[in-house]
């Protein structure tokens, strides 16, 4: 896993961030799908994290869960999932 660059605070140690959940399939409708279904793609995971030990911003993170490489980090809500 590599470091996460918080869009506000800059690169910080991974220990400062907390993962919340993997997002459901794009376009998933209904509370059930949003609550229970998870996308299991070993090459790309789209997730919500919070920078709890910093600015507390909620982040939308695109990551490769097989290598730990972080592709993109943006503030959640700026791009709706």
């Amino acid at each position: 896993m590599t470091r996460i660059a918080c869009p506000f605070c800059g690169p910080r140690e991974l220990r400062e961030f907390e993962f919340h959940k993997t997002l459901p399939t794009p376009g998933a409708q209904g509370a059930f799908a949003r609550t229970y279904e998870r996308v299991a793609d070993p090459a790309l995971s789209v997730e919500h994290w919070q920078h709890v030990a910093g600015c507390r911003a909620w982040l939308l993170v695109h990551r490769n869960p097989s290598t730990g490489v972080v592709f993109a980090v943006e503030l959640a809500g700026e791009v709706m999932p």
Partner: peptide
């Protein structure tokens, strides 16, 4: 967080 790496933090 989700991971398949088997490399613990």
């Amino acid at each position: 967080f989700p991971s398949y790496t088997r490399e613990g933090q």
